[in-house]
Design a protein around this nucleic acid. Structure first.
Lengths: 330, 330
DNA sequence: CTGAAAGCGCTAACAG
DNA sequence: CTGTTAGCGCTTTCAG
C-alpha cells in the first residue's frame, strides 16, 4: 500500500503539503500541487479513508437503515438517498433492519461505532432510541415513521392517504370494507388504521373490521385468510402496504375470488407492478424517491452546517391512483 | 466519547488488558475480565471501529456492489448476503452501480479506500477491473455475471435457462419467438441471447429476431415497441429480466394486446408479482437468496482463511416455472 | 498473565 | 506558503 509519506518523498515535499495539495485546502503553490498530483498518480496513491476518519473524527459515509429491502417503497427511497449522497461525495451504508427491533438496534450500534457522518432511519417503533447517536453529535433524519422524540423528519400523511383510499372504496359502492394494517407497534400501521377508521366512521360504519399483521407477503395472506373466514366477511379491503398486497393476491387466487367482482381492493404504496395487474390495482402512491432525496439533502446539510437549530419537518403528499381494482362491477 | 483509557482507569488496569478482555483474547484473569466488562458497561463504552481498523488494517464490513437496487433479483441477493454477514459479525456496504460502469468504478474505489474486508460484485462488463483490490489482498467474489479474469464466483447457467425458456415457447406452439436481452456489454445478456439462439436454431429458425436494450423497464418497453413494429412481428417474447418484462407489459397494455392469445411471453427472473399477474407469467427462476448467501459464505471464508488457494466456482441451477403466459390459446 | 510503548496513515495546529 | 510535530483510539509486540 502506497501511503502519503511515499508520495511526499517522490514529490520532494512534506506530508502536510501532500495532504493540503490533494485536498485542495488553503493556498498551496500551484506548481507544488501539480508535482504532488503527478507523484500520487505515478505511484497509484489512494487516500486511506480509515486513517483520515480517525483523524477527522468523522467519515464520508451515511447510514440508511430501512425496514425491508424487498419492499419497492424502500428501494425507491434508497435510490433517492444514493443519488444525492453520491453527488455530494458520500457513500451509503445500507442496513436492512428487516422489520426487527433487534436488528435495528444492532445497526444503530454499527452506525455509532463506525462513526458515520449521519443516519437516515425508518424506525421500527416510535420508541426506537437514537439518543446515543444524537448525543455523539451525529445527525439523524427519520423517514416514513415518526419517533417519539423530536428531530428532523421527512414524512407523508399516512392518515389522510388511508382515509381517502377508504372513502374511495365506499364511494365506489363497496359497503363492507375491512383493513389489513401493519404490526401494532409500527406507527405507520397505527396512522393508516386511524385513517381507515375515520373514513368508515364518517359514513356511519362504527366497528369496521381490521387486522394487524406483519408488513410482508405472508402477513398479508394470513390477514386476508382471517378476514375472509369471518362470519361476516368484508366485500373490500384496504391494504397497508404493497408487500401485504401480494399476500392478499395470493389468498384471493387460492380462493378463486375475482377482484372487482367479488372483492374491491386498494393498497398503500404503488409498486411498479400495480398498474399491470389484471385488473390493475388502485394505490396510494408515495413519492418514495423524493423522500429519500429530501432526507439525504436534509441530513447532509446538517452534516455540513452543524446539528444545531430547530428540527425541520418535511411532509410530502400522497396521491390516490385510481385504477380498476376498486371499481365495483355488477 | 468514552474510550479505552477511560475504561482502563475505571477498572484500574492498562488499556492492553482492556483490549484483551473485551476481545476475549488470550488468557486473561477471569476476575479482571469481569471488572473490565463491568467498567465498560458502566461507562457505556463502545469500540471505536475506525481506530481498530486503522490498527488492524482491515474492517468488519464487506461491500456488495449490485447492478440495480430496484431489481427484485438483486434485493433477494442482498438479503442472502446480509443474513450471513450479520451472522458472522460483518456489516454490508451496499452499493448500487445502477448499470453504469462509471458508478461501479467509483464504488470499487470506495471499497479500496475504506479497506473493506471483501467485495461481492455483480460486474457490469466482463472487463471490469478488480486488480487493484485483489492486488491489495482483498478477496472478491463475483456473482451473476462473469469476469474475464479468473476468481471466486457464484453463477447460474444463463445459457441453459434461456435455452429451455425458448424451447418451452416453441413447444407451446408459438412459431415466431423474439428475444429482448440486456445491453450488449453485459455478459448475462450475451449468454441469454446465445441460449435463445441455440434453442431457435435447433428447431431450424436461423435468424431469430432479438434486440438489445437497457436492463430496465424503459429498455424493455422500447425493445418491445421496435419488435412489434417490425414488418414481421414476433408472436412471442423471451425477455431477459423482470425489469424489462414490466416494460413489455406496459407496451402490450398500450397496444391492447393480450398475453396468451396475441402473444406468448417468458421472462428470466421470477419476481414476486409474476404469479399474480393475469395471466400469470412463466419465468426462469434463479435462487437469488442462495446466490447471495453462498457468495457471502465464500467471501468470509476467504477473509478468515486467506485469499490464497484455487478459485472456487459455485454454479446454482435455474428452474423454469411454467405458468399461463406461455400457453398458447386458440 | 499484565503493563509500557510503539505506531497504523492521516490532518491540523503551530512555527517558520 | 511550507514543514514539523503531535496525536486520533486502538492493538500488539516486547519486557517484566
Amino acid at each position: 500500500m502506497v501511503k502519503m509519506t511515499d508520495v511526499a518523498r517522490e514529490a520532494g515535499v512534506s506530508t502536510a503539503t501532500v495532504s493540503r495539495a490533494l485536498n485542495n485546502h488553503t493556498k498551496v503553490d500551484p506548481a507544488l500541487v501539480d508535482r504532488v498530483r503527478a507523484a500520487a498518480e505515478r505511484l497509484g496513491y489512494r487516500t486511506n479513508h480509515i486513517a483520515r476518519s480517525l483523524r477527522r473524527q468523522t467519515t464520508d459515509v451515511i447510514a440508511l437503515i430501512i425496514s425491508d429491502v424487498a419492499n419497492p417503497f424502500f428501494t425507491a427511497v434508497t435510490r433517492g438517498v444514493e443519488d444525492v449522497a453520491q453527488e455530494r461525495g458520500y457513500s451509503v451504508l445500507l442496513c436492512n433492519a428487516d422489520e426487527d427491533s433487534e436488528k435495528e438496534s444492532t445497526y444503530l450500534g454499527v452506525a455509532e461505532q463506525t462513526q458515520v457522518a449521519g443516519v437516515i432511519l425508518s424506525p421500527h417503533r416510535s420508541a426506537t432510541d437514537v439518543s446515543r447517536l444524537r448525543g455523539a453529535g451525529t445527525p439523524v433524519v427519520v423517514i416514513d415513521r415518526p419517533l417519539d422524540t423530536d428531530g428532523d423528519s421527512v414524512m407523508v400523511p399516512s392518515f389522510e392517504g388511508a382515509r381517502s383510499a377508504t372513502s374511495h372504496l365506499l364511494d365506489s359502492g363497496w359497503t363492507r370494507p375491512a383493513a389489513i394494517v401493519g404490526p401494532a407497534e409500527a406507527a405507520t400501521a397505527q396512522e393508516r388504521l386511524r385513517g381507515f377508521q375515520r373514513a368508515m366512521s364518517d359514513r356511519g360504519h362504527l366497528d369496521a373490521p381490521f387486522v394487524h399483521a406483519a408488513f410482508r407477503q405472508g402477513g398479508g395472506q394470513e390477514a386476508a385468510r382471517v378476514l375472509l373466514d369471518s362470519p361476516t366477511p368484508p366485500d373490500s379491503l384496504f391494504v397497508a402496504n404493497s408487500q401485504m398486497m401480494l399476500g392478499v393476491l395470493a389468498e384471493l387466487r387460492a380462493r378463486n375470488l375475482r377482484i372487482g367482482r367479488d372483492l374491491g381492493v386498494v393498497t398503500f404504496d404503488d409498486p411498479p407492478w400495480a398498474e399491470f395487474m389484471n385488473p390493475s390495482i388502485t394505490a396510494v402512491s408515495q413519492p418514495a424517491y423524493r423522500i429519500g432525496a429530501e432526507a439525504a439533502t436534509m441530513l447532509l446539510d446538517r452534516v455540513a452546517g452543524g446539528a444545531e437549530g430547530e428540527p425541520r419537518h418535511v411532509v410530502l403528499s400522497t396521491s390516490l391512483v385510481v385504477r380498476e381494482s376498486s371499481r365495483r362491477l355488477p
